[in-house]
Design a protein around this nucleic acid. Structure first.
Lengths: 238, 238
DNA sequence: AGATTAGTATGACCGCCAGTCACAAGACAT
DNA sequence: ATGTCTTGTGACTGGCGGTCATACTAATCT
């Protein structure tokens, strides 16, 4: 549940239409298709996630991936159009695998908005250790690709809201815990921005030592989380 | 003065030493060198800034750049080691060209911390139109390269603090406008994170339409800035 | 000045890899 | 079987980052 990039998502309908370089050539609507084909597609995406996670975006070689999969390189391009297209699918899958804010257990949920945040901040440290691959891919997508891909990624985050920030903020407002005197899209954006960066700062050392400054030890992390929540409460709390 | 990435900058001394892939091979200390050489280096960096700004990182071709400059391709690699090394220099130059928070005029400065922020938020819209090149390069560096380069960039932002966020926050605390009950590195980080993203959201449409959601018209931007400052005040104000 | 050395410039060349495409192999229908 | 359509394949290409042997220039020495 690393926060997303749903920045000020008003008017999201009026995008300039851009050449869709990243579209796949085969199977544009993956919903309805031969199940065999669909399965192969999924296999490729899974392997790609791992490959990108291990090597990074640029160092990842499509041919290695195809060899490892026992699939011809051409097939991968047939399915995903380009390396960027493949990465985008891997990124989507990675991000969709994360829990939503509202996926927190009921006994946490009833404690309210900021306790839910605390729950996830603490939990993510463990989650990332159990299954670092999607986190690394998400990190790559957030910082380590190029702008055209980043554009697609933002579009995805914006339309899909995979962390459920909007609904989460709505809950907070309904409970009277989150301020309602500012545009709620701004609230959501602030939440997304700060959560994303804060978690990056906490976690990235393991995913990518040196990218962000050292996080303190686990002990100190707890204190940091407290302070962070204090600040965030000041920002968007009531 | 787009905010930087000085995330939680404690313990910044204990970086794991990584192979310095991005170092230039010639003239590692550009301070003291033949003035001719130095001038050439500067010429290349200038042209590179423009080139990267126009084409993006990946689409930029070193050979095109060298042709445009009337300089051999080999020379560029001699000076900067790699495409990434060249970009890093261009990025540094771009970011260094931005004003610091405390560069605001005295009559603004005496109005206090949050008025200084407002001043820059309003001003940047104009600045970016007058001279979009460094902003685009900064944007590329923030989102459009790969992780190894991003790592170097973060290291730079962290050690150099080119926007002077730390000093600015110190001023705010001294004036009693900024909270002192949390670790000031957290305050600085929050400031950096939110300012960066907020400005991206306001500005990016012109630099890179489609990357971030449409900003509203200028009228609405002013209202957004008000709300943003309100929220930011809640976060780090006293 | 001429000779020697160190620093700088050059562009043909190389290796690598994303992306293509002509062809092969299945799948399915008739 | 025969034909048609879909899916799979991997040798091949184009283009670019990066190298390096060589040429040139400037500085230093005799």
């Amino acid at each position: 549940m690393t926060a997303s990039t749903n920045d000020l998502r008003s008017k999201q309908d009026v995008f300039k239409q851009r050449p869709a370089i990243l579209e796949s050539s085969i199977l544009d609507r993956p919903g309805r298709a031969a199940p065999r084909t669909e399965a192969k597609r999924a296999r490729i995406v899974d392997a790609a996630m791992q490959h990108f996670a291990e090597h990074g975006y640029h160092a990842a070689r499509i041919e290695d991936l195809s060899a490892q999969l026992g699939v011809a390189k051409g097939s991968i391009f047939q399915y995903f159009g380009s390396k960027g297209g493949l990465f985008l699918e891997a990124y989507k899958k990675a991000v969709r695998s994360f829990p939503t804010y509202l996926d927190s257990p009921p006994q946490i949920r009833e404690k309210g908005f900021f306790e839910i945040l605390r729950y996830w901040l603490l939990k993510t440290e463990r989650l990332v250790r159990e299954d670092w691959i999607p986190y690394r891919v998400a990190l790559l997508g957030n910082y380590g690709v190029d702008l055209s891909l980043k554009r697609e990624i933002n579009r995805f985050l914006q339309t899909e809201d995979p962390y459920g920030s909007a609904a989460f903020v709505r809950l907070g407002i309904a409970r009277g815990e989150v301020r309602s005197d500012v545009d709620s899209t701004l609230t959501v954006s602030i939440l997304d921005w700060t959560m994303e960066r804060f978690q990056d700062a906490l976690l990235t050392e393991e995913l990518d030592p040196g990218l962000f400054p050292h996080p303190a030890d686990a002990q100190k992390n707890k204190a940091r989380i407290d302070q962070f929540l204090l600040v965030l409460h000041g920002a968007i709390g009531v």
